[in-house]
């Protein structure tokens, strides 16, 4: 369990990016975080893996306060895939990047190979394995960064805007990946601006605005609350918007629901 308790964070320039946040994420959950640019989403998830330490309040991962341990200790449990993959990737081939953590953990060759194969398969990057990450197109480079974190087998994995720049295929790979990882027992936390992706793949959605969490619930709780949509500067998914204009009840968000209703 990850518990954020009354936590506030400021950057070295004294800019306060989060004010008194409370949030609990249980094992096995699939959570999406949505909200305006600059709302503090990245700042918040970086508290979960200890990269950001709150100046007041606490962040507790499986009973351990992030203030009491090193980032490396927490990172073993909480894997974070950066918004910008170039802040993360440093090896000369995709394969070396993905092998890096398993080797650092001194796993057996067999185990390293298994982990790499598995991560490469679910990220669908087999044909880029021996390519220099900087020659790999940006959206696919993001999958290399994701595969590297998956191969380190954290208990919790945080994906920071993985949908940015993805085409239909990339978005579908991501949707399947979220399912596969949670089925294998991982907890998945994703930041996204793709509302359709959020409603199609996550049971729990958190909306952030004004340095805080303004709503935490199901897709319907978020996307049928006009106040939340306005404050978080998000957008009601197209089918929901159509249902609203038609004056239909039932908090419709999905295509089949609307087809049934008409």
């Amino acid at each position: 369990m990850i518990e954020i308790k009354n936590a506030s964070f400021k950057y070295p320039n004294d800019f306060v990016a989060l004010e008194k946040i409370d949030l609990t994420i249980k094992e096995g959950e699939k959570v999406a975080i949505v909200g305006q640019n600059g709302a503090g989403k990245t700042t918040c998830v970086k508290m979960m893996n200890g990269l950001n330490k709150p100046f007041e309040g606490d962040v507790i991962v499986d009973g351990v306060n992030t203030k009491d341990v090193t980032i490396a200790t927490i990172a073993r449990k909480v894997g974070y895939v950066f918004q910008n993959p170039d802040e993360q990737i440093f090896n000369s081939t995709a394969r070396k990047e993905i092998e890096f953590m398993p080797r650092y953990y001194k796993l057996s060759e067999e185990e390293v190979r298994q982990r790499v194969d598995h991560a490469v398969e679910i990220c669908d990057i087999g044909k880029y394995l021996d390519t220099n990450p900087y020659e790999i197109p940006y959206p696919i480079r993001k999958f290399v960064a994701i595969a590297a974190v998956i191969a380190s087998k954290p208990k919790y994995i945080i994906l920071d805007e993985p949908t940015a720049g993805q085409d239909l295929h990339g978005t579908q790979v991501l949707g399947r990946l979220v399912d596969t990882l949670t089925n294998e027992g991982m907890t998945v936390i994703t930041i996204t601006h793709d509302m359709e992706f959020a409603i199609n793949n996550f049971d729990r959605i958190i909306a952030m605005a004004h340095k805080n969490i303004i709503c935490d619930g199901t897709a319907r709780d978020i996307f049928w609350n006009e106040e939340v949509i306005k404050e978080a500067k998000i957008k009601k998914p197209a089918i929901g918007e159509l249902a609203k204009r038609l004056g239909l009840d039932g908090r419709i968000l999905f295509c089949d629901e609307l087809v049934d209703k008409l």
Binding site: G35, Q36, N37, Q83, E161, A164, G165, H193, M195, K233, I234, K235
Partner: peptide, 13 residues
């Protein structure tokens, strides 16, 4: 070329 990939829905619009 893909000016909104990192933007929120309002910024995109």
């Amino acid at each position: 070329d893909e000016p909104t990939s990192q933007l929120d829905p309002e910024g995109t619009e």
